[in-house]
Structure formats: C-alpha cells, structure tokens
C-alpha cells in the first residue's frame, strides 16, 4: 500500500494554508460532493471543476509536481476498480466518466492533505460535533501511526538479518510473528500512554 508512509502536509505560506481549517474541510467535501453529483459525461462542468482545483493548487504554492506525484500514487487503486467497468458493453464511456470523477475527487483530498495539518482537521471535526471518543481515537491513530510503522520496520529489519530462508512459509510465519509481537507491544504501550494521559489530567 503506502510504502513510504509520510505525513502529506507540505508547509508553505499561502492563502490556502492560512484559511480556517473548518472552511477548508467543508470546501473540500463540498467539492467532492459536486464532482460526484455531476451527471456522467458533462465534460464542460468537469473541466470547470478541474480548473477550479488547479487554481486552488496554484494558490497553495505547493509544487504541482509534488501534488501530481501524490495523485499518481493513489490513482492505481481507483484505476483497478475502474477497469472492471471496461468489461461490460458501453463500458468505455462509464470508465472515462468515473475515472474523471475519481481523479478530481482525489485531487481535492490531496490538496487538502498538503495544505492542512491533520490535527487541524481533527479540531474541525470536533467542532462539527463528531463524538469525542471518535476524535480521540483518530488523534491517537494519527499520533502513533508513524511510530508503529517505524517500530514495525525495525522489527522486520531485525528479522531479515537473522532469517536466511527463501521458503515462503517461513517468511509468512516470521512476518506474522512481527505483527503479533507488534500487537503485544501496542498493548503495553497503551498502558504507558494511559498513565501519561492521566498524569496530564485527561478526562474523556
């Protein structure tokens, strides 16, 4: 999936970066809704929305090459599902239409991610009355995701430097052991996090 996991936020000084996060979140979601709600094959409207997205991308001062690269990185998943549409009569039209829609929507989310730190999105979500337990879970997920991916990488590297087997069964069992022990470390880490959170006066 995401081989090099990186926070998509790209710091820069632009009107888009400075805009209020709740506004950006609402705009991005509204943009996606508009794209999805357009009837298939209304190309002028699609072009207009594409141009609007391009203006936003230019205004954000995030290099277009970077946004393009990220778009290409997520495109294959959409392409994979879209290919199914080609297998039916008249599928080419459907294929092109949904590909355009998904590309525009992906562009909006990529732009949002590049210009808005995720904790600001979380703050916006809690302002929109999303249940606090869900926001807390998302915040912890975001906070520890990169930590755990790095830890898993270390365990995997250690495993590779000790296992010299080409057998797939051995590889699978060893990788499963990495995941299993990562879970055990996760539970003990959660205990420490709980203690640390309580020490700082956390209440749900």
């Amino acid at each position: 999936m995401h081989h090099a996991l990186r926070d998509p936020y790209h710091p820069a000084s632009s009107p888009i970066h400075r805009a209020a996060p709740p506004v950006k979140l609402v705009l991005a979601v509204a943009f996606v809704l508009a794209v999805v709600a357009l009837p298939r094959g209304t190309w002028p409207a699609h072009t207009f929305l594409g141009l609007a997205l391009l203006v936003g991308a230019l205004a954000s001062r995030v290099p277009l090459s970077l946004l393009g690269k990220r778009l290409l990185a997520v495109e294959p998943f959409a392409l994979g599902v879209a290919l199914l549409a080609l297998l039916q009569p008249g599928g080419l039209h459907v294929f092109l239409a949904i590909l355009a829609k998904s590309t525009l929507s992906l562009g909006a989310v990529v732009l949002l991610g590049a210009t808005t730190p995720f904790f600001q999105v979380l703050r916006a979500l809690s302002r929109f009355r999303v249940p606090s337990l869900l926001v807390t879970t998302l915040a912890l997920l975001y906070r520890y995701l990169f930590v755990l991916v790095e830890e898993m990488g270390r365990m995997q590297r250690a495993r590779r430097s000790r296992t010299f087997s080409r057998s797939r069964w051995v590889t699978w069992r060893a990788s499963a052991a990495v995941i299993g022990h990562l879970f055990l470390r996760t539970t003990t880490r959660a205990e420490r996090i709980y203690a640390a959170m309580c020490a700082r006066g956390w209440r749900t």
Partner: peptide, 13 residues
Amino acid sequence: VPLIGVAAAFIFA
C-alpha cells in the same frame, strides 16, 4: 480508550 486508538494505528501499520 488509548488502547483502541493505538490499536487502530497497529491495524494500519
């Protein structure tokens, strides 16, 4: 509560 959050990170990882 923290376990659920970190476990979500674990599943993602």
